[in-house]
Simulated assay, not measured.
Amino acid sequence: METQLVSSVSSERRAEVIVDAASRLFLAPGLGRVSMDDLARELGMSKKTIYRHFPDKRSLLTAVLDRLFGEIERTMVVAAEESEGLSFDEQVQRFLHAACSELGRIGAAQRATGRGDAVLRRHVEQRMDAVVYRRLDELFGHGHRLGLLSAPPELLSEIIRGAAERLLNSTLPGKFDRSAADLLRMTVDTVLYGAIRGQEVES
Protein backbone atom coordinates (compact mmCIF):
# COMPACT_ATOMS: atom_id res chain seq x y z
CA MET A 1 0.00 0.00 0.00
CA GLU A 2 1.46 3.35 -1.02
CA THR A 3 1.75 6.17 1.47
CA GLN A 4 -0.35 9.28 0.91
CA LEU A 5 2.82 11.30 0.20
CA VAL A 6 3.93 8.99 -2.60
CA SER A 7 0.49 8.51 -4.16
CA SER A 8 -0.19 12.27 -4.23
CA VAL A 9 2.84 13.32 -6.30
CA SER A 10 3.11 13.45 -10.10
CA SER A 11 4.82 10.69 -12.06
CA GLU A 12 7.88 12.88 -12.74
CA ARG A 13 8.14 13.91 -9.10
CA ARG A 14 7.65 10.31 -8.00
CA ALA A 15 10.81 9.32 -9.90
CA GLU A 16 12.69 12.05 -7.99
CA VAL A 17 11.27 10.79 -4.68
CA ILE A 18 12.47 7.28 -5.53
CA VAL A 19 15.98 8.55 -6.39
CA ASP A 20 16.02 10.62 -3.16
CA ALA A 21 15.26 7.57 -1.03
CA ALA A 22 17.59 5.33 -3.03
CA SER A 23 20.40 7.85 -2.54
CA ARG A 24 19.87 7.84 1.22
CA LEU A 25 19.91 4.06 1.38
CA PHE A 26 22.45 3.07 -1.26
CA LEU A 27 25.00 5.76 -0.35
CA ALA A 28 24.73 5.48 3.44
CA PRO A 29 27.94 4.32 5.13
CA GLY A 30 28.09 0.89 6.69
CA LEU A 31 24.67 -0.40 5.67
CA GLY A 32 25.87 -3.22 3.45
CA ARG A 33 23.72 -4.40 0.57
CA VAL A 34 20.34 -2.69 0.23
CA SER A 35 17.58 -4.56 -1.59
CA MET A 36 14.70 -3.21 -3.64
CA ASP A 37 12.44 -4.57 -0.87
CA ASP A 38 14.27 -2.29 1.60
CA LEU A 39 13.71 0.65 -0.73
CA ALA A 40 10.03 -0.17 -1.21
CA ARG A 41 9.55 -0.29 2.59
CA GLU A 42 11.40 3.04 2.99
CA LEU A 43 9.13 4.65 0.39
CA GLY A 44 5.91 2.96 1.45
CA MET A 45 5.27 1.85 -2.14
CA SER A 46 5.26 -1.41 -4.02
CA LYS A 47 8.26 -2.66 -5.96
CA LYS A 48 5.97 -2.68 -9.00
CA THR A 49 5.64 1.10 -8.74
CA ILE A 50 9.41 1.51 -8.47
CA TYR A 51 9.94 -0.73 -11.51
CA ARG A 52 7.46 1.39 -13.46
CA HIS A 53 10.02 4.22 -13.25
CA PHE A 54 13.23 2.17 -13.12
CA PRO A 55 13.13 -1.23 -14.85
CA ASP A 56 15.86 -2.70 -12.64
CA LYS A 57 18.20 -1.92 -9.77
CA ARG A 58 21.05 -1.06 -12.12
CA SER A 59 19.06 1.70 -13.85
CA LEU A 60 18.05 3.11 -10.46
CA LEU A 61 21.63 3.03 -9.17
CA THR A 62 22.78 4.72 -12.39
CA ALA A 63 20.32 7.55 -11.73
CA VAL A 64 21.60 7.82 -8.14
CA LEU A 65 25.22 7.93 -9.31
CA ASP A 66 24.50 10.46 -12.05
CA ARG A 67 22.86 12.79 -9.56
CA LEU A 68 25.77 12.37 -7.14
CA PHE A 69 28.40 13.08 -9.78
CA GLY A 70 26.36 16.05 -11.01
CA GLU A 71 26.69 17.52 -7.51
CA ILE A 72 30.42 16.73 -7.41
CA GLU A 73 30.88 18.36 -10.82
CA ARG A 74 29.17 21.54 -9.60
CA THR A 75 31.67 21.67 -6.73
CA MET A 76 34.57 21.35 -9.18
CA VAL A 77 33.15 23.99 -11.53
CA VAL A 78 32.69 26.48 -8.69
CA ALA A 79 36.27 25.85 -7.52
CA ALA A 80 37.57 26.50 -11.05
CA GLU A 81 35.50 29.65 -11.45
CA GLU A 82 36.59 31.03 -8.07
CA SER A 83 40.27 30.45 -8.88
CA GLU A 84 40.23 32.25 -12.24
CA GLY A 85 42.93 34.91 -12.37
CA LEU A 86 44.87 33.41 -9.46
CA SER A 87 48.39 32.02 -9.72
CA PHE A 88 48.78 28.52 -11.11
CA ASP A 89 49.79 26.99 -7.78
CA GLU A 90 46.72 28.55 -6.13
CA GLN A 91 44.49 27.16 -8.90
CA VAL A 92 45.94 23.69 -8.32
CA GLN A 93 45.48 23.93 -4.55
CA ARG A 94 41.87 25.12 -4.89
CA PHE A 95 41.03 22.38 -7.37
CA LEU A 96 42.55 19.64 -5.25
CA HIS A 97 40.96 21.01 -2.08
CA ALA A 98 37.56 20.79 -3.82
CA ALA A 99 38.34 17.26 -5.03
CA CYS A 100 39.39 16.18 -1.53
CA SER A 101 36.19 17.63 -0.07
CA GLU A 102 34.24 15.28 -2.37
CA LEU A 103 36.28 12.18 -1.57
CA GLY A 104 33.71 10.88 0.92
CA ARG A 105 30.92 11.00 -1.66
CA ILE A 106 33.17 9.42 -4.30
CA GLY A 107 33.90 6.59 -1.85
CA ALA A 108 30.17 6.19 -1.22
CA ALA A 109 29.62 5.83 -4.97
CA GLN A 110 32.28 3.13 -5.15
CA ARG A 111 30.76 1.25 -2.20
CA ALA A 112 27.28 1.47 -3.72
CA THR A 113 28.39 -0.31 -6.89
CA GLY A 114 29.87 -3.14 -4.87
CA ARG A 115 31.94 -5.86 -6.46
CA GLY A 116 29.16 -7.64 -8.30
CA ASP A 117 28.33 -5.21 -11.10
CA ALA A 118 31.15 -4.47 -13.53
CA VAL A 119 28.92 -2.17 -15.62
CA LEU A 120 28.22 0.11 -12.65
CA ARG A 121 31.87 0.08 -11.60
CA ARG A 122 32.84 1.21 -15.10
CA HIS A 123 30.16 3.90 -14.91
CA VAL A 124 31.67 5.28 -11.70
CA GLU A 125 35.16 5.18 -13.22
CA GLN A 126 33.96 7.05 -16.32
CA ARG A 127 32.21 9.71 -14.27
CA MET A 128 35.27 10.10 -12.04
CA ASP A 129 37.43 10.50 -15.11
CA ALA A 130 35.14 13.11 -16.67
CA VAL A 131 34.37 15.09 -13.51
CA VAL A 132 37.73 15.06 -11.70
CA TYR A 133 40.69 13.48 -13.48
CA ARG A 134 40.22 14.99 -16.94
CA ARG A 135 39.96 18.43 -15.37
CA LEU A 136 43.11 17.76 -13.36
CA ASP A 137 44.92 16.66 -16.53
CA GLU A 138 43.88 19.90 -18.24
CA LEU A 139 45.07 21.98 -15.30
CA PHE A 140 48.48 20.30 -15.16
CA GLY A 141 48.72 20.52 -18.96
CA HIS A 142 48.12 24.28 -18.69
CA GLY A 143 50.88 24.58 -16.07
CA HIS A 144 53.23 22.59 -18.29
CA ARG A 145 52.56 24.90 -21.27
CA LEU A 146 53.32 27.88 -19.05
CA GLY A 147 56.63 26.25 -18.05
CA LEU A 148 55.63 26.09 -14.38
CA LEU A 149 56.07 22.36 -13.78
CA SER A 150 59.37 20.63 -13.18
CA ALA A 151 57.75 17.18 -13.61
CA PRO A 152 55.71 15.81 -16.53
CA PRO A 153 52.01 16.67 -16.06
CA GLU A 154 51.00 13.09 -16.90
CA LEU A 155 53.16 11.80 -14.05
CA LEU A 156 51.66 14.22 -11.52
CA SER A 157 48.13 13.31 -12.62
CA GLU A 158 48.87 9.59 -12.39
CA ILE A 159 50.38 9.87 -8.90
CA ILE A 160 47.40 11.83 -7.57
CA ARG A 161 44.90 9.53 -9.27
CA GLY A 162 46.66 6.48 -7.81
CA ALA A 163 46.78 8.03 -4.34
CA ALA A 164 43.06 8.86 -4.40
CA GLU A 165 42.08 5.37 -5.55
CA ARG A 166 44.35 3.70 -3.02
CA LEU A 167 43.24 5.83 -0.06
CA LEU A 168 39.57 5.19 -0.74
CA ASN A 169 40.21 1.49 -0.01
CA SER A 170 43.04 1.80 2.53
CA THR A 171 43.23 1.14 6.26
CA LEU A 172 45.62 4.08 6.68
CA PRO A 173 42.89 6.63 7.51
CA GLY A 174 41.89 4.53 10.53
CA LYS A 175 45.50 3.90 11.48
CA PHE A 176 46.34 7.62 11.53
CA ASP A 177 42.90 8.70 12.76
CA ARG A 178 42.53 10.90 9.68
CA SER A 179 40.03 10.91 6.86
CA ALA A 180 41.01 9.70 3.41
CA ALA A 181 40.61 13.32 2.25
CA ASP A 182 43.11 14.51 4.90
CA LEU A 183 45.67 11.93 3.78
CA LEU A 184 45.12 12.78 0.12
CA ARG A 185 45.78 16.45 0.89
CA MET A 186 49.02 15.45 2.65
CA THR A 187 49.99 13.32 -0.37
CA VAL A 188 49.23 16.14 -2.77
CA ASP A 189 51.28 18.60 -0.72
CA THR A 190 54.17 16.14 -0.73
CA VAL A 191 53.94 15.54 -4.48
CA LEU A 192 53.60 19.20 -5.43
CA TYR A 193 56.21 20.53 -3.04
CA GLY A 194 58.94 21.46 -5.47
CA ALA A 195 56.97 20.35 -8.52
CA ILE A 196 55.69 23.87 -9.14
CA ARG A 197 58.58 26.09 -10.13
CA GLY A 198 59.14 29.43 -8.47
CA GLN A 199 58.24 28.31 -4.96
CA GLU A 200 60.80 28.90 -2.27
CA VAL A 201 61.88 25.91 -0.23
CA GLU A 202 62.07 26.55 3.48
CA SER A 203 65.37 25.56 5.05
Score class of each variant (00 low, 15 high):
43 L>K: 04
156 L>C: 10
105 R>L: 14
80 A>C: 10
8 S>V: 04
49 T>S: 11
5 L>E: 09
148 L>Y: 00
57 K>I: 11
148 L>S: 00
137 D>F: 09
171 T>E: 03
23 S>F: 14
193 Y>T: 12
132 V>F: 08
141 G>R: 04
161 R>G: 02
65 L>R: 06
11 S>N: 13
200 E>C: 07
101 S>H: 06
6 V>E: 00
123 H>P: 01
25 L>D: 03
25 L>K: 07
113 T>D: 01
92 V>R: 03
74 R>Q: 15
4 Q>M: 13
157 S>T: 14
195 A>Y: 05
146 L>N: 01
9 V>E: 00
123 H>M: 10
200 E>A: 12
39 L>C: 12
196 I>K: 00
134 R>A: 12
7 S>V: 13
193 Y>G: 07
145 R>N: 06
179 S>K: 03
106 I>A: 12
133 Y>A: 07
61 L>W: 09
186 M>I: 13
96 L>D: 05
59 S>D: 12
27 L>F: 13
163 A>K: 03
34 V>G: 07
100 C>T: 07
1 M>E: 03
142 H>T: 14
45 M>C: 13
191 V>T: 13
4 Q>A: 14
78 V>N: 01
189 D>A: 14
193 Y>S: 11
173 P>M: 05
40 A>W: 09
59 S>H: 06
187 T>S: 14
19 V>Y: 02
102 E>W: 12
117 D>K: 02
62 T>L: 11
128 M>K: 08
88 F>W: 08
162 G>Y: 01
89 D>F: 08
149 L>G: 00
9 V>P: 00
124 V>D: 03
151 A>M: 12
64 V>S: 07
82 E>A: 14
15 A>Y: 04
127 R>H: 08
186 M>C: 08
197 R>C: 09
80 A>W: 15
58 R>N: 10
105 R>S: 15
59 S>L: 12
144 H>T: 02
49 T>H: 05
31 L>A: 10
117 D>E: 11
113 T>Y: 02
178 R>H: 05
12 E>I: 15
145 R>D: 05
153 P>M: 05
17 V>W: 07
16 E>M: 05
32 G>E: 11
3 T>N: 03
152 P>V: 14
84 E>P: 04
127 R>S: 06
16 E>C: 04
60 L>P: 08
120 L>A: 06
150 S>P: 04
85 G>H: 09
171 T>H: 06
32 G>D: 04
42 E>F: 05
123 H>Y: 10
9 V>L: 10
191 V>K: 10
141 G>S: 11
46 S>M: 07
79 A>N: 00
82 E>I: 13
51 Y>K: 10
108 A>H: 09
156 L>W: 06
90 E>V: 15
185 R>I: 15
134 R>T: 12
103 L>Y: 12
96 L>W: 04
134 R>I: 02
174 G>M: 04
26 F>Q: 11
21 A>R: 02
147 G>L: 00
137 D>M: 10
157 S>E: 00
10 S>P: 05
130 A>I: 08
22 A>F: 01
161 R>C: 02
57 K>M: 11
75 T>K: 12
71 E>V: 15
201 V>W: 05
1 M>N: 02
128 M>I: 13
185 R>E: 14
30 G>W: 03
145 R>K: 09
176 F>R: 14
126 Q>G: 10
174 G>C: 03
84 E>T: 06
98 A>L: 13
21 A>P: 06
